[in-house]
């Protein structure tokens, strides 16, 4: 009888502990490792004027999309990425979709994204990986991610180069 009681208590303890872990994980997931009002992405026109500045809240206000893949050249395993479709983002602008735009990272890396990519592959500006926000020293806070898992033909140097991590700026032509 006491043995049975002991076992029941043990189960209860386990349940409480696991519940606590779950809550803390949820708190981590919901808390970005940077201020939510911090400007994350600037849209700059050809003249160098900032047309728009987007914070995490602004991005999350837009409809989201999920793709699967991994960041090239980093040995990171494949993950699910969640963010705003780049095409959808461009559609919010009061200008017609440009033929090409330049994606620039915090480290000043940049590559040209042609409009065909937006139509054909619909890459996203991801802010979550496997449900978690991205820290700046872990390729975040934003990554321009292509849907590698659903389009194997993307495994080319061209698209690897267009996958810009630490995305901070979109320059219009």
């Amino acid at each position: 009888m006491p043995r049975l009681l002991f076992r029941g208590l043990r189960y209860l303890l386990l349940l409480v502990l696991s519940g606590l872990f779950a809550v803390s994980a949820l708190a981590d997931a919901d808390e970005p490792p940077y201020p939510t009002d911090m400007p994350l992405l600037r849209i700059v026109d050809a003249a160098g004027n900032t047309r728009e500045t987007l914070t995490l809240e602004a991005l999350e206000a837009l409809p989201g999309r999920e793709v699967h893949g991994s960041i090239p050249d980093t040995h990171n395993p494949e993950a699910s990425w969640y963010g705003v479709s780049l095409a959808r983002l461009m559609a919010t602008l009061p200008i017609p979709p440009p033929a090409r735009l330049l994606a620039v990272g915090l480290d000043d890396y940049s590559d040209v994204i042609p409009r065909q990519d937006l139509e054909r592959y619909d890459p996203i500006v991801a802010y979550r990986r496997n449900g978690h926000y991205l820290a700046v020293d872990a390729y975040g806070p934003l990554v321009l991610m292509y849907p590698y898992a659903s389009h194997p033909e993307l495994h080319e140097r061209t698209y690897y180069s267009r996958t810009v991590w630490q995305l901070s700026e979109l320059r219009l032509p």
Binding site: V136, D137, Q166
Partner: peptide, 18 residues
């Protein structure tokens, strides 16, 4: 400073795996 440090730290990551 945090952002710049983060970017710098991020450049270390490929070397940890290569």
């Amino acid at each position: 400073l945090i952002l710049t440090l983060g970017v710098m730290r991020n450049t270390l990551d490929p070397f940890r795996h290569t």
